[in-house]
Design a protein around this nucleic acid. Sequence first.
DNA 1: CAGCCTCGAGTTCT
DNA 2: CTCGAGGCTG
Length: 685
Amino acid sequence: MSSTLKKKRNDLITTIKRHQEAYYSKDQPKISDEAYDQLVAELFSLDHELNIPRSSTEKTLGVGHKKRDEFFSVEHSTPMLSLDNAFSFDELDLFFKRVTDFIKKNRIDFVPKYSAEIKLDGVAVSLTYMDGELKTAATRGDGLVGEDITDNVKSMNGVPEVLNLKSKNKSNITYFENSIIEIRGEVIFSKKDFERFNKYQERASEKLFSNPRNAAAGSLRQLDAAITKSRPLTFIVHGVGKTSGSITDDLITHSSFLELMESVGFKIIRPRIKNGHPNIIKDYINQILNIRESLPVEIDGIVVKIENYELQSMLGSTVRAPRFAIAYKLPSETAITEVIGIDIQVGRFGTLTPVARLKTVSIGGVNISNATLHNEDELRKKGVKIGDRVEVRRAGDVIPEVVRTVNTSIRKSDNSLSFEIPKFCPSCGGKTERLEGEVARRCISGKKCPAQFEQAFVHFVSKKAMNIDGLGTKLIQQLIRENLVNALDDIYNLKYFQLEKLDRFGAKSAQNLISSIDKSRVTTPAKLLYALGIRHVGLQTAKAICDALTCFEELFSLAPEKLALIDDIGPVVMFSVSSFFETRENLELTKRLLNEVSFKKEVFNKKGVFAGKNIVFTGTLRTLKRALAQELVQKNGGTCSGIITKKTDLCVAGEKAGSKAREAQKMKIKVIAEEEFLAMIDKNI
DNA sequence: CAGCCTCGAGTTCT
DNA sequence: CTCGAGGCTG
């Protein structure tokens, strides 16, 4: 091994560290980011020649600045939504039609123009600049809450720390002063960098990434920002989030926003379409499809957006996706493999789902060995049998799914076994039924069925329910097998010595589990209700129900008709909830659980016109949104419910108020109009 | 009553 | 992520 090379390497490390210190600790970089990256790249290429594992070098570079234990959560000021998909030009036309219909209906004097651009397959990131300076960066997360990755994006390719506008008439300082702008984009690894990087990794016997997207995600989510810094990541802008201040008025169209971003130091992707019409957009899509392979980056589809921001905001969004944009998706990658067997899984509510066990096959760098067959009808329609060769894809590039059988004509009949959904539950042997109009066949044994009990348990401890950390499926199975839990509340009576005795479970693990069980005791009414696992009651519905109550126990004696008065609760949910609490075991279980847990106390204002009062809204409010009205009540010291009960003090009736208002009158509860309500508030804010 | 929009339930792999 | 189905709106 060449000692000159080694010496060169050591010198290089010293130099890099010096620059790191200047950058991180003194905040005064002596060289440009590009020059720094160049040095790091040089170091890694030396490593390559010297056969030194990349990870050890990364560790070396990481020394000297603090590494953290975890990322902080950040709430997005406006949710980072996903996009609706179109899989064909027909579906794309439906999108254009919806827009023109909307324009016609609202008599807007506007010819809609569209932008189109490549949708990069990377990691969505949001950057917030205040007064033109990078303040925070966050990952998308679940769309509402992401992770703070500010350190990781600093100095990333395409992320200017200060926005420098090279404009003639406006100076930098005044342009972004007093403005906050949230810039959204994609962090990507180019195909070339990905291959180069994986070669390093391979030589160093390090973990390989399965595709550029994973490489980008893995590199970005490094707790040690120095590692992120050493990886060839690029940020490409694709949209704007929340803005405030003078900048807001300058943003008129999507394309002009992107051009502005480009002029202040961001990267945007080309070719793209600006101010296009549907036919131009389609031509562009065809063009991109043709050159897809030769593009330097992996792409996920093509995004079509309405150019004009004003029109965008008129169209608005659903909770999931904006109505002013759509993603034209490319056909997802598929693979052919063999069905080794078909298993039946029993879900939380007894649903029997056929799952194909496959000869493992790789799709987009992920090994697939199971794929859902959904239900009886799907199974029959696709005619999947054991021994068949099938085409498998990852629906939305995530969930494996059998698309079709191939070569069925030459299928050897003795090799292919037909498969039917069993009439009896594979877990408990009990009866199953398939109700008229439903796709699923269900085991009807309820919690007596071992599979259903196990699933109910998994649900109970899950994050959105009781959130008991460190209690996974395997452990749950073990607890059930050892007879340590026979009902959901038994979890709260587990003792340290019982856990410690379990196989492969030490003192430390037992201690941790006990403490996370205890931590879960403090929760919210909605989470508890959700955790109970009542059919048709998800977290949202549980929240809606709990918001309507003044205490949890009210549920036990609440008449079904009362439940149905709650917004978003119809006959089906009503029946499901009321029959749950009419069943004795369920009622007892819930009461026992209530003894084990406690609710965080909501702190309400003791002052204000509505202090201590419970108020119910009904009908359509003309000037206020329902949520805003409820907020106003809380600000004035009151609480809101969705249903009229003995505890209701006041009912505010909007337009077309119906049964709730009558109910209130019947119970001699004061009913007032929206105007009257507003008048009460105005005096007191 | 149809056509949204949302929610729930089921699923995979790392 | 996707499907189905519940519930609301026009």
